[in-house]
Design a protein around this nucleic acid. Structure first.
Lengths: 229, 229
DNA sequence: GAGCTGTTTTTGTGATCACAAAAACCGATG
DNA sequence: CATCGGTTTTTGTGATCACAAAAACAGCTC
């Protein structure tokens, strides 16, 4: 009976590899950001289930930071939590999608309108470059790359609006739509490049505010109308 | 001091008062909702600091659910977290307040517009009743009651819009403005009852959509314009 | 062979603990 | 009297554990 009653057992101090030095930015933030970009970029399909222990294993942290990250994403609508606490990416109803599309239109038209007077040449050229990257993603039939670069186009423009709270709300909507957009563009297999993006650039160049508002509204609305099929 | 040398003895199982039976809805939700309504209703001034252990003591839970609730509120912008992890109610800059006011106008005009075709007589009468309660709160110089009933007026109307995602975003904005509204109305000491609320009710009764949009926009904007003083 | 029941595994929840860093405190010194 | 130094206290962070409930699985009966 060598180890009959291991009295201490109380070894709660694990490695402790000295987490200081270097701005690790708190482990749960790493998990939060990792999951957030994955969801927003459409790397996860709708109704994809996640487990806290699985997340912890993947990001090499314990359950505590994983839970905080998940809670935060649930609060933002990026994940849905069942009554038993299980979390999964949302499977949106048609009414919900239409409502989120209306929200996108409302917010993004305003953001674009505010960005217009501050849009200089360098910004417009950057937007055109991004448009080229989007065309590449479409040519490669890479849905994730398409979603990511498409959002980058919009964010680049809206950053000029100098309206951080409004942009944050906008990104929350994108987050909620992430898995749905993946499912949508995944089965859509579009081959044309976004026509409205060119209209946006043209309106910016011309300083045409009504044209810009219409182009943004059309771009935001068009993709999400196809799901009625 | 007083080296008790507390023998751990490994007794991690506390009372465990059988949390089953009854839908306790998970302890952190109780904390979240409690803090959320307190912040939204303006019971806390701006820059009011909170501690996890203090929250846990107040709601009679441990630090874990308190942390989750705080994380969630931070994600929604209801609390701000310093780099060292301390949390406090936000002290908004003037630009931020103006931006949030613009967001309120954008969202609430749309919500009111969507609610208009569904607004029946019972709703209009309910709104008038709430207006009476608001007048009482003003008479009693009760800032918290004023904020609470004022938000109730708006929420009652917007619920008819059948747009839950939009209403949720709207409430997030209210949440961020809670402490600021307390500070504002606290030192304002207004005695007149809200003129635009009557305009909203009148426009609803007349089915006048442009009038409704203008009235809502004015009501939302007016209060927050005074802070330039 | 299909359906149901009892068991086993998985999973979320909340409490506790050790630790690091920030904050508060407090005394000594110029 | 103010300021600086060190010490003590407070506070957030993350890991771990026990437990309950849900899910998965197995075995048994009809």
């Amino acid at each position: 009976m060598q180890d009959q009653s291991p009295p201490p057992a109380h070894k709660p101090v694990p490695p402790l590899v000295s987490p200081r030095s270097e701005n690790v930015s708190s482990a749960h933030d790493k998990v939060y950001r990792g999951l957030r970009t994955r969801i927003m970029h459409g790397e996860l399909p709708p109704a994809h289930a996640l487990t806290l222990r699985g997340i912890g294993r993947e990001f090499d942290v314990s359950m505590t930071p994983a839970r905080e990250a998940v809670q935060r994403l649930v609060a933002e609508g990026a994940l849905f939590m069942s009554s038993s606490g299980r979390v999964a990416t949302p499977e949106l109803s048609n009414e919900r999608i239409e409502e989120l599309a209306a929200l996108r239109a409302l917010l993004e038209v305003e953001l674009a309108s505010r960005a217009l007077p501050r849009a200089h040449m360098a910004l417009i050229e950057r937007l055109q470059t991004i448009n080229g990257t989007i065309a590449e993603a479409i040519a490669h039939k890479d849905a994730v790359a398409y979603i990511r670069t498409n959002l980058e186009f919009h964010r680049t423009l809206y950053l000029r609006a100098q309206a951080p709270a409004m942009l944050a709300m906008c990104e929350t909507v994108w987050l909620q739509l992430g898995p749905t957009m993946r499912a949508l563009y995944g089965r859509l297999q579009r081959t044309e490049l976004p026509q409205f993006h060119r209209a946006i650039v043209a309106a910016l160049r011309a300083g045409d505010e009504p044209g810009l508002r219409l182009a943004v509204r059309s771009d935001v609305t068009q993709g999400l109308k196809l799901l009625a099929s």
